[in-house]
């Protein structure tokens, strides 16, 4: 009875940040108060990223950068880090992921949320909580130390808003005994058409898919490729098949599905 701190205890922490909901859920051997401190610190990382990168906050360093009032050099160093990461991802995806808008401003929103989520999760791991999942507004990562079978399984929403009455589960995947630890989904169901076409300035992105879910080893990789594949359209199926350590499920507007070759092994049984 006195040794409760060594008995893993279930926890759930929901935080509203960056315009969406983040949910940490798992088991911790720390005391309740320590668990709570760790999770609050992790969420501080999310809020700090939002303070720097939000384009909805007119005084954020990134908003000021977009208006030309400041330079990358004058911004917090993390801006330069994200800028470089975005440039690298643009090359990696053959230009299908781009943080540089047609107005030549820098909008890394597509990367910052999952990047910050990864930093927050790393912090939680470093503090000794190793058995948890993090749902970052629909993009999910699973820690290596997850002990419950259900935590390895993730539902994928139908390509309609989760707030819609007909919302439901399209399918369920199971990442247990795979090297995959993350899934990210891109689509127009929640936020409308917020993905632009980096290859055709002024044109809408490809309309082949209404939703693309990408499964990868880490959350940022999954997120970037989901955005890129959504923008690329149908040819992304072949494109993603050529990339190692990625699987993807594509939903067409008519409800048909397509997938990379290995995806079939990930369906929950």
């Amino acid at each position: 009875m006195t040794e409760v701190s060594h008995q893993p205890k279930q926890f759930e922490h929901i935080e509203l940040a960056m315009g969406t909901g983040f949910s940490f859920h798992g088991r911790s051997s720390l005391s309740d108060s320590d668990t709570s401190i760790v999770l609050n610190q992790a969420c501080a990382i999310l809020h700090e990223a939002d303070r720097i990168f939000s384009l909805y906050k007119p005084e954020s360093p990134l908003s000021r950068l977009a208006r030309g009032e400041t330079s990358v050099a004058a911004c917090p160093p993390v801006v330069d880090e994200i800028w470089n990461a975005c440039e690298q991802w643009e090359k990696t995806t053959d230009g299908w992921f781009s943080a540089f808008t047609s107005e030549h401003t820098f909008d890394p929103s597509g990367l910052v949320k999952t990047w910050a989520a990864e930093r927050a999760a790393e912090y939680v791991l470093e503090q000794g909580i190793t058995d948890f999942t993090l749902n970052a507004g629909g993009d999910i990562m699973i820690s290596d130390g997850v002990t419950e079978a259900i935590d390895w399984r993730m539902g994928i929403s139908k390509p309609i808003s989760i707030a819609a009455p007909e919302a439901g589960v399209l399918t369920v995947v199971d990442l247990h005994r795979t090297t995959f630890r993350a899934m990210a989904t891109s689509g127009s169901a929640e936020r409308g058409n917020h993905i632009w076409n980096p290859k055709a300035v002024g044109l809408a992105p490809n309309q082949d898919f209404v939703q693309v879910s990408v499964i990868a080893r880490d959350l940022v990789t999954a997120d970037v490729w989901a955005t890129a594949a959504f923008a690329e359209g149908e040819r992304a199926i072949a494109h993603l098949n050529r990339i190692d350590d990625l699987e993807a499920l594509f939903v067409y507007a008519d409800g048909n599905l397509a997938a990379t070759d290995g995806f079939i092994n990930l369906f929950a049984k």
Binding site: N135, G137, G138, G155, S157, A163, L170, A184, Q211
Partner: peptide, 20 residues
């Protein structure tokens, strides 16, 4: 696979309002 239970639901990034 639909009927299998799971811990997390993934989807296109939902807004705070949709989440709530």
């Amino acid at each position: 696979a639909q009927s299998t239970n799971f811990a997390n639901l993934g989807g296109a990034t939902y807004t705070t309002d949709a989440f709530k």
